[in-house]
Deep mutational scan, measured.
Amino acid sequence: NRLGIIYEIQGMKAVVLTSEGEFLIIRRRKDMKVGQQVSFENEDIYNV
């Protein structure tokens, strides 16, 4: 599992900021809110 803070939500995608200072786009889940810490898997990351 990886951890990140939700920075922005766009439709079915969420932008998270990881503890390494990396911004990633992941698959959104219904319970996500901006500012929330979430765990996610590598499979949830969109390749940009």
Rank of each mutant, 00 (worst) to 15 (best):
N1H: 12
N1L: 14
N1A: 11
N1S: 10
N1T: 14
R2N: 06
R2S: 06
R2V: 04
R2H: 05
R2Q: 06
R2P: 03
R2W: 10
L3T: 11
G4A: 06
I5F: 10
I5D: 02
I5E: 03
I5K: 08
I6K: 00
I6L: 04
I6A: 01
I6S: 00
I6F: 00
Y7Q: 11
Y7H: 06
Y7M: 11
Y7D: 02
Y7T: 07
E8M: 12
E8Y: 14
E8R: 15
E8T: 13
I9Y: 03
I9E: 01
I9A: 02
Q10E: 11
G11P: 09
G11Y: 08
G11E: 12
G11D: 09
M12C: 15
M12F: 14
M12P: 14
M12T: 11
K13N: 09
A14L: 06
V15W: 15
V15M: 15
V15N: 04
V16G: 00
V16Q: 00
V16H: 00
V16M: 03
L17P: 00
L17D: 00
L17I: 07
L17N: 02
T18I: 04
T18W: 04
T18Y: 02
T18K: 01
S19D: 10
S19K: 14
S19F: 12
E20L: 08
E20D: 09
G21S: 06
E22V: 14
E22I: 14
E22W: 13
F23L: 10
F23E: 03
F23A: 04
I25C: 15
I25E: 03
I25Y: 11
I25H: 07
I26S: 00
I26V: 05
R27F: 14
R27V: 06
R27S: 04
R27C: 12
R28Q: 05
R28Y: 15
R28D: 02
R28W: 15
R29F: 07
R29D: 07
R29N: 10
K30N: 15
K30H: 15
K30S: 15
D31F: 15
D31V: 06
D31P: 10
M32Q: 07
K33T: 08
K33D: 06
V34K: 12
V34Q: 06
V34P: 05
G35F: 06
G35V: 00
G35D: 03
G35E: 02
G35R: 04
G35H: 06
G35T: 02
G35L: 04
G35W: 06
G35P: 01
Q36M: 14
Q36C: 13
Q37M: 14
Q37G: 06
V38K: 01
V38F: 05
V38S: 03
V38E: 01
S39P: 05
S39C: 13
S39H: 13
S39G: 04
F40H: 01
F40V: 03
F40Q: 01
E41V: 07
E41W: 06
E41M: 13
N42S: 11
N42T: 10
N42P: 07
E43W: 04
E43R: 04
E43I: 03
E43P: 02
D44Q: 03
I45E: 06
I45K: 02
I45Y: 04
I45V: 07
Y46G: 09
Y46Q: 12
Y46M: 11
Y46A: 10
N47E: 14
N47S: 09
V48I: 11
V48G: 10
V48S: 13
V48N: 14
